[in-house]
Design a binder for these strands. Structure first.
Length: 257
DNA sequence: ATGTCAACAGAGTGTTGA
């Protein structure tokens, strides 16, 4: 089974890119982030026309997440991240597909840091880590995927020294990610490619994609049950070079059935 | 400091967020 994640950066602005990518690569499950549209403005029909259906949690202007499947039943588990009743941002969806628990997340960016946005990021991260521990305790196959907005290590950024003050790379963000992984999760891309640069995001500024000045901020974390099922993983980086494309590229894993 | 996008309000371009 192939599972993909893609921060589309505006589902309506990127619709031709999204459809072309889905038709070309045909993942069984797709987690989307940054829809930037309320649920009623999500192009559900165009996506259904190429064989995908699923659950959406939209929001006007910002955020928004979705989990889509192709020929697979999807059972919704949650539309919010537990732990803060007052948090109304659409950043988390959870569903069960093929007996696998899938958490689709769009972790707050957090810039500028320090400041209230960075504080929100760190609070959200703590809530997420609490929830992730509860998912591990289920003792079931779990995949956590999406835009974590964290560069885990110096290996994951083209020039680490330029990102030291950024919310994506500050010690607090890296430390929260390490605490999460150390609960017992496997960083799927890094497991298969331990020693090479892997990027999932290239800024629109200064021809970052052409210079391969990228970051790795979109991740797949696997619960221990799935460790031995991981067959392959990759980044569809060519999509980042298409016209009217997102600043992120799709990331995918292939699991044994 | 800069740079590039998209959504929005509201009608031209500035603001916000990334």
């Amino acid at each position: 089974m192939k599972i993909a994640t893609y921060n589309v950066n505006g589902i309506n602005a990127r619709l031709p890119v999204l459809l072309r990518w889905l038709e070309t690569t045909a993942p069984d499950v797709v987690c989307l982030q940054e829809l930037k549209a309320p649920t009623e403005k999500i192009p559900e029909q165009a996506i259904a026309d190429i064989g995908y259906q699923g659950i959406w949690q939209g929001q006007k202007s910002w955020n928004g997440v979705a989990i889509l499947t192709r020929n697979l039943e999807i059972q919704e588990v949650s539309r919010t991240l537990p732990g803060d009743e007052e948090d109304t941002q659409s950043r988390y969806l959870e569903a069960v597909v093929n007996n696998i628990h899938i958490g689709c997340l769009y972790l707050p960016n957090g810039n500028p840091a320090p400041g209230p946005k960075f504080d929100y990021k760190l609070r959200w991260f703590e809530r997420f880590n609490t929830h992730a521990a509860a998912l591990l305790a289920l003792n079931k196959p779990v995949v956590l995927t999406g835009d974590f907005n964290v560069i885990p290590t110096e290996q994951d950024v083209y020039r680490p020294e330029r990102w030291l003050e950024d919310a994506l790379f500050r010690p607090e963000s890296r430390s929260a990610f390490k605490i999460l992984v150390d609960q017992g999760w496997t960083d799927a891309l890094r497991k298969l490619y331990p020693n090479e640069p892997i990027y999932t995001f290239w800024d629109y500024f200064r021809n970052a994609y052409e210079r391969n000045a990228g970051l790795r901020i979109d991740h797949f974390l696997l619960s221990p049950h799935l460790d031995s099922s991981l067959l392959a993983a990759g980044v569809d980086s060519d999509v980042r070079g298409w016209e009217k494309t997102s600043d992120h590229a799709p990331v995918w894993i292939e699991l044994a059935d």
